[in-house]
Write a protein that binds this DNA or RNA. Structure first.
Length: 227
DNA sequence: GCGACAG
DNA sequence: ATCTTGTCGC
C-alpha cells in the first residue's frame, strides 16, 4: 500500500531542491574523446533501510575492461517514491564516488535522465551533484510513450512526454526488450544513444552498469552471510 | 475520478 | 528493488 507522502514537508522540500538543481543542468553533446565510462547502481536489503551503492569505471578503449571501482553502504530514511528516487539513492552513490581513485569522463546511471515527470531524474541529478557528464539508461518507463523500435540491435524510437522528445527506446540487443535512454548533465540524446550502444556490444544492459550491479549485490550478500 | 508509477 | 530454483537457449 502506498501512502500520500508528497504532502509531508520533507517532500515539498525535495521538489524545491529538484527544481533548483535542474536549473544547474547543462544540455550539450557528450565529449568526443570519451575513454573512462562509469556505471552506477544501488541495491537494498529486504526492508530497504540499508543501501549499497557501487560505481565501476570501464575503459572504452580497452574493450570495456574495469579500470576502477568503489562500493559504499549507508542507512537511509527517504522512501522510494516514483519521481524522487534520487533523494533516496544519491547519498550512497556520492559516498561511492568519493572512494573512486579514477574519476570517469561520464557516468551511466541505472535510472532516467530527463525522461522524468519534472525533467530531472536520478541520472541528471547525479551528474549535476558530482559535476560530471551523465546519461540515464533505465530498464522500464517512468513517464512518456513510445512506439516499439524494430527488432534489430541499434534501432530506436522516440520517447515523448507532454509533447517533448525526452529520450529513446533503444534496442541494445536484437529481439530483446529495449532500454530507455535519456540525457543527463552535460549530455544530449544523440551522444547518449551512441555511448549506450558502445557500452553494450553484446548484452542488453551496458557493461559499466552490469558491473556496478554485480558489485553492490555482492557487497550486500557478502555482508548478510557474515552478520 | 481512475490509473500509472525509475529502483 | 527484494523474496527465490530450476530450466531453456545461444
Amino acid at each position: 500500500m502506498r501512502e500520500p507522502r508528497y504532502e509531508n514537508p520533507i517532500y515539498a522540500e525535495a521538489l524545491l531542491e529538484q527544481r533548483r538543481l535542474k536549473s544547474l543542468m547543462v544540455p550539450k553533446p557528450l565529449p568526443e574523446d570519451l575513454r573512462f565510462v562509469a556505471g552506477a547502481d544501488v541495491s537494498c536489503g529486504r526492508f530497504g533501510s540499508t543501501l549499497w551503492g557501487a560505481i565501476v569505471v570501464c575503459d572504452l578503449k580497452e574493450k570495456l575492461r574495469p579500470a576502477a571501482s568503489s562500493v559504499a553502504r549507508m542507512e537511509v530514511s527517504f522512501p522510494y517514491l516514483p519521481g524522487l528516487l534520487a533523494f533516496r539513492e544519491i547519498p550512497v552513490l556520492k559516498k561511492a564516488w568519493e572512494g573512486l581513485k579514477l574519476k570517469p569522463d561520464v557516468i551511466l546511471c541505472d535510472a532516467h535522465g530527463i525522461a522524468h515527470p519534472r525533467g530531472f531524474g536520478e541520472a541528471a541529478h547525479l551528474g549535476v551533484v558530482l559535476g560530471v557528464s551523465s546519461v540515464g539508461c533505465a530498464k522500464s518507463l517512468l513517464c512518456g510513450s513510445f512506439e516499439m523500435p524494430s527488432m534489430e540491435r541499434g534501432s530506436w524510437s522516440n520517447l515523448v512526454f507532454e509533447g517533448r522528445l525526452v529520450g529513446a527506446a533503444l534496442r541494445t540487443r536484437s529481439r530483446v526488450a529495449p532500454v530507455f535512454v535519456s540525457a543527463g548533465h552535460f549530455s544530449d540524446l544523440p551522444s547518449a544513444i551512441a555511448l549506450v550502444m558502445a557500452c553494450s556490444p553484446r548484452l542488453r544492459i551496458p557493461e559499466p552498469i552490469r558491473q556496478a550491479h554485480a558489485l553492490c549485490n555482492a557487497a550486500r550478500r557478502g555482508e548478510a552471510r557474515e552478520g
